[in-house]
Structures are given as structure tokens and as C-alpha cells.
Design a protein around this nucleic acid. Structure first.
Length: 490
RNA sequence: GCGGGUGUAACUCAGUUGGUAGAGUAUCGGCUUCCCAAGCCGGUUGUCGCGGGUUCGAGUCCCGUCACCCGCUCCA
């Protein structure tokens, strides 16, 4: 009866759905805007009482699925890392492209690739206008032009003289802006450029640099993985779509180290395991798909890459990436650190740098996908019932305890049940208002079970359990409650 | 970053040509209620996003700014 009808049946359009969820998230304490009383902070969100439970459950299920295995170890690396890490990883080089926009035609250009779009004749003419002495200096026209573009003082004037390659207008460029996606901060109390370090833009590097530590201390042999959950930070140009693109986010990553030649096999295996994880927690299968990266668009480190995408109301969006990173990362860290990152295979007696299969899921994005996927509006007796059909393992509150009326000894029995269950299960006690209203309140926050104490309870020590999705009730003895619920939550 | 839209109670929204801010829902306290947002009585809730300006007077007009949404762009 877990029917998966289109959740937009009542919502007027897709945008309404996100807005309703954002509203519900705030009203019921899932997600608040960061620093809200100060007007908010762009792209930052706080998890409220129910949100933190849902997020914790998502992470816990991931942790169990990924590390309760013989071949995967856990790790929790520091957010701050040695600056050389980000040189080795390629982030320093690749995260700092100055960009300009044409105010006229709205085209955007990377300054470092702008030179390719300008004709030689035009370059010469523009340089002559700006500073004729440059032309007589050594070097090719390309080099001179690029040098001017990179010069912080001269590039501004150069850009004023250049026509936009797309629309031809002059003087329509914005100032060049550096989009450095890594957050900078300072190690130590002195704001000295020598002390610049970064907030990690991904958790992966913390795993790579600990490869030898974990291998040596855990006595693992290839193939094996290292898993980590943690915050990462990217100074995104645009934040967008609620929790989907934020500047601070949480990743759930597992890097699987394997022998070259076996990498494709492991890549395929982890692809299947990872999409099945989302399915096993109730995510609608038709809203999940792989999006394989075309070979010509792969990142510099990858041999193969795919995204697990979820169909959000605003379209398909990546919730997890699975990449074959080859020996790029360990190779680079070996090169930059000077420390050997090879693995010695006892059986074949050969040494090699392991290949890495990466599974990198967004905890915040998964949170949002599970939240959006669970949201339904249903017609019940002419009224709209809004309900979050979370998998019981993910539900923030597992069960509510409701005395049908506040008299005849029912509250006393209900309170006794509450105190018996509370050490084991996240529960909620509610005696306010009509029971129908209480059921609906629990539906709205996704509580899978409601335990109701009624007159019959007083006679025979049984209670009803009302199931969220079907609204059907069964009656069981109070003494069986914990067993019953535990089985359902397992 | 550009363009467009929106910011008024916890939520959804009214608010007239500028004249001391409202509704529904929610929430809280009662009464009533034996199973799906029922009813009755009463109570609480506001930096009108923020800052300036115009004005005797600004939620309303102007400027700036912040945040959110949509589109473009971006997303090693």
C-alpha cells in the first residue's frame, strides 16, 4: 500500500512542491535559514530538531552500509589540511579562474581563455592602443597579450578596449573576478599570506593522504576502502535550490583502493551497490538514474565517471558521484610529498600505486532527496493530508503515543508506555486535541507508527498501532510493543 | 555575476489616492470529545527583511543593501 503516485497531483506545479517543502521544513523544524534573524546568509542552512534526526539517520544508514563490511575502514580527517594537499589535488590550479561578463549580451568568459577568441590583428591593435612599448618586447603576440591579461593593473584597461567576442560591443565587460572556489582562512592569529590555508572543498583528500596510515594500522590488503563523513566547503558562484547547492555541505565518501586492472570491475560493483542503497531506503526507483559522464568531458583525474541522479521538482540533480580516479591521486601525493604511496602485493611481489574507485554522496543532497521523495499530498475524506512517507529507518520520530482521551486512566497508561519505550526508540507523546488532528500532525513529520490507548486498553492491556501510509490499525498487547516496533525498524 | 519576481505574525497571505497593522491556519489554556486536521470559549504572537531619503506623517513613494525563488551563466 506504499503507493507512489505523482506527488504533484495537487500541487499546481513543481515549484509549488519545493516551496511547500521549504515551508513545512521550517514550520516543523527540519531546516531553518542560517542566521535568519540577521537576514540570512546566502546558501547556508541549519538543521532543526527533526532535520538533525533525519540527517543523522541518513548518515547512520550510510555508515552501516559502507563500513559494516570486512573490506572498509572508517576515518574522520581534519577539515584543515596542509596547503600542499590542494596543490597536489589540482584544486589550487583549477579553482581560480578569473571570469568576466559582458553586460550587454550576458556572455561569460574565462579571462585565461579569452585570448583564444580574439584575432591576432585585433590583439595587436588593442595592445598598440594600450601600450605600444609592449609590442617591441620579446615573445609572441599570444604571450604578450596573455601577460597583459594577467597583469592586475593593465588587464582592466585592456578589457575596456576589447570588444566582446560575442556581441562586439566595447566597454561592456565587468571587472575580472576570481572565482576561487576554495574558502581561504589563516593558520595562526596573524593574517599573513604565508599562513593561508583552505577549508577542504572535498573530504576525499583526507582519505588519500591517510592511505598508508590506514593500510598499515588496519592490516587491510587490497582491495579495501576507507569511508568518511564530513563537512566540505565551496565558495560557489551561485547557491541554488534550497539545500541542493550550498557553500557548506556534508559528504559521505568512500574511496576503494584496488589493483590496476581490477578497477573496472569494482567500479561497476560499487555503482550497483550505491544506487541500490537509495532504493533500499525507499527512494522512488523511477526517480533514480545513472548519468554517465561522456569520455571527452571527464575530469582530469578520471577514467570513468557516473552520477546517481534524483529527479527533483526542479529537474534531475546529482546526489552521488562514482568515479574511477585511477592512480592519479596517490601518484600526485607521492610526487608532492616525496613519500612513497605504492602498495606491495605479497603474492605477486610487485609494487604499484593503487587505483581508486570513489563513491561520493552528498549527505545534504541525499537529505533533500529523501525529504522531497517522501512528500505526498493525498485526498482523505475531502481534506488534504500531507504526509512524509519516510522509510521507518529514516523517520525522525519512530512512534507517537496518544491517549485517545485525557481521562479514565488513559494518560497514565500512555505515560507508562512512553517511559518503557523511550530508552529504545525516538518517540513523541501527544495528548493535545482530537486524535485525528494528532494523527495528521504525525503524518506531516513522517512518524511511521501511532500507538493509541483507548477504553479497551484498560480492559485487556492492548493498544492500537496506526500505520502512517495506509492509516490502517491493528491491535496488539502492550507487552509486545517493543518487539513489534523493533522488528519494523530493523 | 546578469535579468526578472518576492520579502507584512511560526506558516499562507490581505493591507485602498501615504494617515498609529489584519485574516485564516498554527500555537497555548479551558470545555467537549472512543479513532483520522470536528465544535465552543478565551489567550499569545509583528525590528512590515535591513539601512537611508522624501514627507507633518511611509508597510505604501525613492535610493541602497540583504535574503529567497525563476531564467541565463557557472558547477576543476
Amino acid at each position: 500500500m506504499h503507493k507512489k503516485n505523482p506527488r504533484c497531483a495537487i500541487a499546481k506545479n513543481q515549484n509549488d512542491t519545493v516551496e511547500k517543502i521549504v515551508s513545512l521544513a521550517k514550520r516543523r523544524g527540519f531546516v531553518f535559514q542560517s542566521s535568519e534573524i540577521y537576514g540570512g546568509l546566502n546558501g547556508c542552512w541549519d538543521y532543526g530538531p527533526l532535520g538533525v534526526e533525519l540527517l543523522k539517520n541518513v548518515k547512520e544508514e550510510w555508515w552501516k552500509a559502507m563500513t559494516y563490511r570486512e573490506d572498509v575502514e572508517g576515518l574522520d580527517a581534519s577539515i584543515l589540511m596542509h596547503p600542499r594537499v590542494w596543490e597536489a589535488s589540482g584544486h589550487v590550479e583549477n579553482f581560480t579562474d578569473p571570469m568576466i561578463d559582458c553586460k550587454q549580451c550576458k556572455a561569460r568568459f574565462r579571462v585565461d581563455t579569452l585570448t583564444e577568441l580574439i584575432s591576432a590583428k585585433n590583439k595587436e591593435k588593442t595592445i598598440k592602443e594600450l601600450d605600444p612599448s609592449v609590442l617591441s618586447a620579446a615573445g609572441t603576440l599570444e604571450e604578450k597579450f596573455s601577460a597583459l591579461l594577467e597583469d592586475p593593473d593593465k588587464s582592466i584597461k585592456l578589457l575596456e578596449l576589447l570588444g566582446c567576442p560575442q556581441c562586439g560591443n566595447k566597454g561592456t565587460f565587468t571587472q575580472p573576478r576570481k572565482f576561487n572556489l576554495m574558502f581561504k582562512t589563516f593558520l595562526g592569529p596573524v593574517d599573513d599570506s604565508a599562513n593561508i590555508i583552505y577549508l577542504r572543498p572535498e573530504t576525499a583528500q583526507g582519505i588519500f593522504v591517510n592511505f598508508q596510515n590506514v593500510a598499515n594500522s588496519s592490516r587491510q590488503k587490497l582491495p579495501f576502502g576507507i569511508a568518511q563523513i564530513g563537512k566540505a566547503f565551496r565558495n560557489e558562484i551561485n547557491t541554488k535550490n534550497f539545500l541542493f547547492r550550498t557553500r557548506e555541505f556534508e559528504q559521505m565518501e568512500m574511496q576503494y583502493f584496488c589493483k590496476p586492472g581490477t578497477d573496472t570491475l569494482h567500479y561497476d560493483e560499487w555503482k550497483e551497490r550505491r544506487i541500490n542503497w537509495f532504493k533500499s531506503l525507499g527512494m522512488t526507483e523511477s526517480k533514480l538514474r545513472f548519468h554517465d559522464h561522456p569520455k571527452d568531458k571527464l575530469a582530469h583525474y578520471a577514467k570513468n565517471a557516473t552520477d546517481i541522479e534524483y529527479e527533483f521538482p526542479f529537474g534531475w540533480g546529482e546526489i552521488e558521484g562514482i568515479h574511477n580516479r585511477t592512480d592519479f591521486d596517490l601518484g600526485r601525493h607521492q610526487e608532492y610529498s616525496g613519500k612513497n604511496q605504492q602498495y606491495f602485493d605479497e603474492e605477486t611481489k610487485d609494487k604499484f600505486i593503487p587505483y581508486i574507485i570513489e563513491t561520493s554522496a552528498g549527505a545534504s543532497r541525499s537529505f533533500m532527496a529523501f525529504l522531497v521523495d517522501a512528500y505526498y499530498e493525498e485526498e482523505v475524506n475531502g481534506e488534504t493530508r500531507s504526509v512524509l512517507k519516510f522509510h521507518p529507518k529514516l523517520a525522525p520520530i519512530k512512534a507517537a503515543i496518544l491517549p485517545l482521551v485525557n481521562k479514565d486512566g488513559m494518560p497514565e497508561i500512555a505515560r507508562k508506555i512512553e517511559s518503557d519505550l523511550r530508552p529504545f526508540i525516538r518517540i513523541f507523546y501527544d495528548d493535545k486535541g482530537a486524535v485525528g488532528r494528532r494523527y495528521r500532525r504525525m503524518d506531516e513529520v513522517g512518524t511511521p507508527f501511532c500507538i493509541t490507548v483507548d477504553t479497551q486498553t484498560i480492559d485487556d492491556q492492548t493498544v492500537t498501532i496506526r500505520e502512517r501510509d495506509t492509516m490502517a490499525q491493528i491491535r496488539i498487547p502492550i507487552s509486545e510493543l517493543l518487539n513489534y516496533l523493533s522488528a519494523k525498524l530493523r
